[in-house]
């Protein structure tokens, strides 16, 4: 009888550890715990370019995560990217003239939406649209502009360099 009792205990421990590790994987490793069903409201923003933004990317205000991207679709009429975001219901006092920008966390990090508060007395609510948006920075475009600009500057002011060479 004693023997079967220890066996029971060991099997019980084994099953408990197995289920505990499944829970660990679900809650600690994947993002299951950050799901908050029902307690969100949806807002929409239109970007001329949403860059590398993905579904589930973070939406933050002042650096604090307040929601996540729900869907990204392409509007065939205006050629814009329509980003739907779920905002946690506890953050219900965001002004409705807030602006949305797509930023990158770090140099190679993930892209996220940042909401910057405006001055309006009206608040964003379910189904609101954000009017003021800043597109994602495309690195190639920015580099191209920078190179183009510096080339133009060189062209526009060729004399001082020539003068220096001449003096020397």
């Amino acid at each position: 009888m004693q023997h079967t009792h220890t066996q029971d205990t060991l099997v019980g421990l084994f099953v408990a550890t197995g289920i505990a590790s499944l829970f660990f994987l679900g809650l600690q490793v994947s993002n299951l715990s950050s799901f908050s069903h029902g307690n969100t409201y949806e807002i929409t923003a239109r970007f001329s370019n949403s860059g590398g933004l993905k579904v589930k990317s973070a939406v933050s205000a002042a650096g604090v995560k307040i929601g996540s991207v729900k869907a990204i679709t392409f509007d065939q009429k205006t050629y814009e990217s329509v980003v739907k975001m779920d905002i946690d219901a506890q953050y219900k006092t965001l002004p409705d003239d807030s602006s949305a920008s797509v930023y990158t966390a770090g140099l190679l990090g993930e892209q996220y939406v940042s909401l910057d508060g405006g001055g309006s007395d009206e608040y964003l609510k379910n189904g609101s649209k954000i009017e003021i948006t800043n597109s994602a920075l495309v690195l190639e475009k920015a580099l191209g502009q920078f190179l183009f600009k510096s080339a133009e500057e060189k062209k526009a002011t060729p004399s001082p360099t020539n003068d220096k060479k001449g003096k020397k």
Binding site: G26, V29, S30, N31
Partner: peptide
């Protein structure tokens, strides 16, 4: 270590498929 893991692993796509 943990937050990047949580942000990039999907419960349905990764954990359930592994199980």
């Amino acid at each position: 270590y943990w937050s990047q893991m949580q942000a990039n692993l999907d419960f349905r796509g990764d954990i359930v498929n592994g199980v």
